[in-house]
């Protein structure tokens, strides 16, 4: 169960999390997983597919309660989540999907959110009329609309074409930076993590553990191509066994 944290901090201590497969055997997904996040920090979890990233987010969001450990979340404030799939209500328009979770949102705030994410022309469309990239952006708008103090993003840019991913990544960076939000982002793309986060946690294959923690001190806008390439190669050196795919955003 999530406990209330001081100063908007997030503390994650998962001693053990396992699933029971359909054939009845238990297998471990997480062991001794620890992570702490300061107020207004943006952290990225980077790890190979299937290592348990989504499971970590689900535990923090309170969707998985069957695990050993404790989660500490900001005492006040809301939770915003962008799931790995958009999870919009197909029978509500884009605008209604966003309004539903944030009834208190002013007209102006909604308009500026849609403007920032280039969604204005799609307000009255139904999710079935949107491309995946657009639906992702609506899911992002929905998560931001609740004015969360903690934002969880599960691979928000995956399976978008490169140009779109880069654009959405920059929009996302700007939106997060302009708000007092603590953000935890999951990705398997190292470059994406470097561009968005203040701090990167590299995860091992299953059962996931933090194998390295990389603080990024340079401000986001100052991270040049060379700087990014340097960090990527540094990480590649540190990794043994090549469990990570180097960034290719």
């Amino acid at each position: 169960m999530p406990l209330a944290g001081e100063f908007g901090q997030v503390e994650v201590r998962i001693a053990q999390k396992s699933f029971t497969s359909a054939s009845g055997e238990r297998f471990e997904v997480l062991r001794d997983f620890k992570l702490s996040l300061g107020h207004h920090q943006v952290a990225a979890l980077v790890g190979p597919s299937g290592c348990g990233k989504t499971t970590i987010l689900r535990i923090i969001a309170g969707l998985e309660t069957d695990f050993e450990g404790t989660i500490t979340r900001p005492l006040s404030g809301k939770l915003g989540v962008v799931f790995q799939e958009p999870r919009l209500l197909p029978w509500r328009t884009v605008e209604d999907n966003v309004r539903l979770v944030a009834p208190g949102l002013t007209r102006e705030a909604l308009a500026s959110l849609f403007r920032d994410l280039d969604l204005e022309v799609h307000r009255l469309h139904y999710p079935g009329e949107l491309s995946l990239g657009l639906a992702r952006r609506v899911a992002l708008a929905r998560a931001l609309a609740v004015e969360p103090s903690l934002l969880l993003l599960d691979e928000p840019l995956v399976s978008l074409d490169e140009a779109l991913a880069v654009r959405l990544r920059d929009q996302l960076a700007a939106l997060i930076a302009s708000r007092p939000i603590t953000t935890l982002l999951v990705t398997h793309d190292l470059e994406e993590a470097i561009r968005l986060a203040d701090r990167i946690f590299l995860l091992s294959p299953r059962p996931a553990q933090v194998i390295a923690e990389i603080p990024l001190t340079a401000p986001r806008s100052a991270r040049s191509e060379r700087e990014v390439a340097r960090i990527v190669s540094e990480v590649a050196c540190r990794m043994t066994g090549g469990a990570l795919r180097p960034g290719h955003a």
Binding site: A61, G62, L63, K78, L79, G80, V81, F83, E85, R87, L89, W91, R92, L100, V101, R142, V146
Partner: peptide, 24 residues
Amino acid sequence: SGLNEMATVFALSRRKYMWHVVLP
């Protein structure tokens, strides 16, 4: 179940959950 989780995470009220998520 994905939409149910969405409703949980965004703390939709019981009434809203019924009307906008379940009934449709």
